[in-house]
Simulated assay, not measured.
Amino acid sequence: MTEYIHIGRIVASHGVHGDVVVVHSLGSRNNFKDVKALFVEQVKNSYIPHFISSATARDAEQTQVKLEGTDSKESAHRLIKKNVWITEADFNRIADKNAPISLLGYKIYNRQDLLGTVEEVIEQPHQVLLKTNFKNKEVLVPLHAGTLEAVDRKTKEVRVILPDGLLEIYLEN
């Protein structure tokens, strides 16, 4: 079964020919080279392929994309605010290795204790949150200068030192 990685969302249409602007967290200027399709979540948990005709990177976070079958401003407008996904294989090929999103699948350790595997990366203005499942509870691990101890890309591990009591807050209920 194909695995999909959430990379961002469509935020605007551009021009009158159906181009859309995708804001992504791939970590570098990206024109989706050799990516055949973006999967747009038009309905919750549905990954509808939209084949790429062309794409132009605007900056490290935005790419202007022309999708097949989206040929008017109105058809592009239907896709605004929709989540965008790509296949895991495409993600592994085009994501910047230093981007926070590249931590997906890494094991998270608090000191020596395994918390779980990174299931989602949530980027906020002053920190990154790593979502994991610890003792059958969803836990958001803050990742910033005060908590990050090390990232080992070879062993795919993130080591943090969490403030006392943070995990207990998640485990109370």
Rank of each mutant, 00 (worst) to 15 (best):
L130A: 00
I108H: 06
P100T: 02
V121Y: 02
R78C: 00
A89T: 10
V22M: 12
P125E: 07
N31Y: 12
N31A: 13
T2A: 10
I161G: 02
D34H: 05
L38G: 09
V151P: 11
I169S: 05
K156M: 12
F32R: 09
S46A: 01
H14G: 00
S28G: 13
E41I: 08
K81R: 11
D113Y: 11
V35F: 09
A76Y: 00
H50M: 10
S13V: 02
P100L: 00
A37V: 00
E88C: 07
S53Y: 08
I5T: 04
H144T: 01
K82L: 09
Y47A: 05
I86W: 12
I94F: 05
N30F: 02
D90Y: 13
Q124V: 10
E119S: 09
L130I: 01
V84H: 05
E149G: 02
P125L: 05
S25N: 13
V128Q: 04
E172V: 12
Y4I: 14
K107Q: 11
N30C: 15
R153N: 08
K33H: 13
V65K: 03
V158H: 03
K82A: 07
G116A: 07
T70Q: 04
P49F: 00
V35S: 04
V40K: 04
G69K: 02
A76C: 01
K81M: 12
D59V: 00
I10T: 07
Y109P: 15
K66T: 05
V65Y: 07
R29V: 14
R159T: 06
L26Q: 08
T87Y: 15
T2M: 08
I122E: 10
E74C: 04
T155E: 12
D90S: 06
S75F: 12
N136Y: 10
K131G: 00
K154W: 11
T132N: 08
R111F: 12
T132C: 14
L79C: 13
I122S: 02
P125A: 08
A12H: 12
H126P: 01
A95F: 03
E68C: 11
D113L: 14
L148A: 04
L130V: 00
V11L: 04
S13P: 01
R29L: 10
S25K: 12
T117Y: 14
F32I: 09
E157C: 14
K44T: 14
L67F: 11
N110T: 10
A60L: 10
D152S: 14
I94Q: 04
S46M: 03
V128H: 06
T147Q: 05
K73Q: 14
E61F: 15
Y4A: 07
T132Y: 14
I94P: 03
N83Q: 09
L162A: 06
Y4L: 11
